[in-house]
Write a protein that binds this DNA or RNA. Structure first.
Ligand code: MN
Ligand code: MN
Ligand code: ZN
Ligand code: ZN
Lengths: 133, 133
DNA sequence: GTCTTTTTTAGAATAATTCTAAGTTTATTG
DNA sequence: CAATAAACTTAGAATTATTCTAAAAAAGAC
């Protein structure tokens, strides 16, 4: 998979104009938009599309590891443009979601009592609270 | 809040027979049952109750910090009898959820690049994969 | 061009959860 | 104790994010 200037290329994933548009909006969005927020944005583009298509596009990106689906509590899923490993901080006052990076050279097993030989295929860390300032 | 022999006592929380029964089932359940699984179990007790009541009881427990609501992906919420801080490991083959404790003396900020002064009110860690054996 | 596969779409369906409003139980007060 | 107030339970309706369906359109292969 190559990512360059908001152009996504994944072998086996057709880059239709709808997918290009959804991907672009996601990349330009610093926040973590929901499907319906993206759907609203799509209505102002040259390829307005159905909500089903927005969901389909996002699902394709998530399946190919280009986008992360972020589930916090039972709220509508949000989608994350940052495909590198990171945690999510949900600021309570504003409702915004911030990416938090891992410290280099650290691992979850530094703080978790995991049995030896555990294979982790997926990892989600979500914090809620207040960031300084 | 005092917990003794599966008797929950929280100031301000009436311990009706329905709440006692839901709490007991949750405590005796090593797994992390969903509301509808608990509802099914309730039908065999001396106080069969409505699904709305199961949801109401669980909501009351969660609000009072006696029970944890566990959300993994978009699956139905599961409820956790372990009110101490811990992470959840979702075993992919069986679908079971295991509690993982934190190593004593460690903190999330050991591995996360959190700004100084961050206030964390809530924390969720979910792993997915395979446990040994 | 034809053929095949993938994608898009409108609208219907699904399903977990919440809401409503009425009845019941429990606590409090005099 | 009786009267009143507050909290709780309930059946069923409503909500709503998401998925499904089945038909049309688009894209790629040849
Ligand atoms: Mn939010
Ligand atoms: Mn599961
Ligand atoms: Zn993110
Ligand atoms: Zn747990």
């Amino acid at each position: 998979m190559k990512v360059h200037d908001h152009q996504l290329q994944v072998p086996g994933l057709r880059m239709t104009k709808q997918r290009k548009e959804v991907y672009r909006a996601l990349m330009e969005n610093q926040d973590h938009p929901s499907a319906s927020e993206l759907f609203d944005q799509m209505q102002d583009t040259e390829s307005p599309m159905s909500l089903a298509t927005v969901y389909n596009c996002l699902e394709a990106f998530v399946e190919h590891g280009a986008v992360k689906q972020v589930n916090i509590d039972r709220e509508p899923s949000r989608y994350c443009q940052n495909s590198t490993p990171h945690a999510h901080f949900h600021e309570q006052e504003t409702g915004t979601i911030h990416d938090i990076n891992f410290k280099p050279g650290t691992s979850l097993s530094d703080i978790l009592d995991l049995p030896e030989g555990t294979e982790i295929s997926n990892l989600e860390i979500t914090l809620k609270g207040k960031l300084p300032q």
